[in-house]
């Protein structure tokens, strides 16, 4: 009896210790514990989209070797019915960004994207790759031509290669959003919007006006839309079976 009470006291002590260390480490208290069961998963594309060169650890990056298997897992898991993609990225590697965008576009489950702070550069194809896209009032998206950071174009072939790569981005964006190729290229090559650079910084409502993004809205609107798409997807499946 005595021993039992001793054990429970010890447990209590370790619990208090854990809580104290959590407060010391992050200044936060316990959050409600829930069962790990949800039909909507969320994928965050944050920082720089890392390509074939690994960036030093001080950079915040989204790595394609993390994201691509996660999308495969989401496609395979029957309990997951929808995916919310949250973007706050400065852009990054074109090939890696396009790979993620193509993975999202080919996902059979409903997907909704939401651009929070910024969805710049290669973040644009990722934002439009989802079934429905949202942008917050203050979020921005920079549209600019593709470039090799710092490296000088030496031969005409390099230029042609870059031009082809750019064409892939333009084709993907125009295919997956309501923006026309003329308008997108106009934004991409316009002068005077970015200081000493070519391109345009499109703010939330403008992105919707150009047809790049579907709607201005926050997380609640995005979740509502995702639930609506999930219901549509379910009723469609039911019809298929019948």
């Amino acid at each position: 009896m005595e021993k039992e009470s001793y054990i429970s006291e010890e447990k209590q002590e370790t619990k208090e210790e854990q809580a104290a260390s959590a407060i010391q480490q992050l200044g936060q208290t316990n959050v409600p514990q829930m069962t790990p069961d949800t039909n909507i998963h969320c994928l965050t594309i944050v920082g720089q989209i890392e390509g074939h060169i690994q960036l030093p650890p001080q950079n915040k990056t989204t790595k394609y070797e993390h994201v691509i298997p996660q999308i495969v897992a989401i496609e395979q898991n029957q309990n997951i019915e929808g995916l919310l993609v949250i973007l706050n990225t400065v852009g990054g590697d074109v090939e890696a960004g396009l790979a993620i965008a193509e993975m999202l576009a080919s996902l059979s489950k409903p997907t909704v994207s939401i651009v929070l702070g910024g969805g710049h550069s290669i973040g644009v194809p990722i934002a439009v790759s989802c079934d429905y896209s949202f942008i917050t009032e203050t979020a921005t998206m920079t549209i600019h031509p593709i470039r090799l950071t710092g490296l000088v174009i030496g031969v005409p072939q390099t230029f042609e290669y870059l031009d082809k790569m750019q064409e892939r981005v333009v084709r993907f964006v125009t295919k997956h959003s309501k923006i026309t190729e003329e308008k997108f290229k106009e934004l991409m090559f316009s002068k005077g919007n970015l200081t000493r650079d070519i391109g345009t910084n499109v703010v939330g409502p403008d992105a919707v006006r150009y047809g790049l993004i579907d709607e201005v809205g926050g997380v609640s609107k995005a979740m509502d839309k995702l639930r609506e798409l999930i219901e549509l997807n379910k009723s469609g499946e039911r019809k298929m079976i019948q």
Binding site: L26, Q28, V31, Q33, M34, P36, T38, Q70
Partner: peptide
């Protein structure tokens, strides 16, 4: 790095 939002609510999976 989880995509399950509920994993972010658990104390033991929090950064730090």
């Amino acid at each position: 790095l989880s995509t399950n939002p509920l994993h972010f609510l658990e104390q033991k999976y929090a950064p730090g």
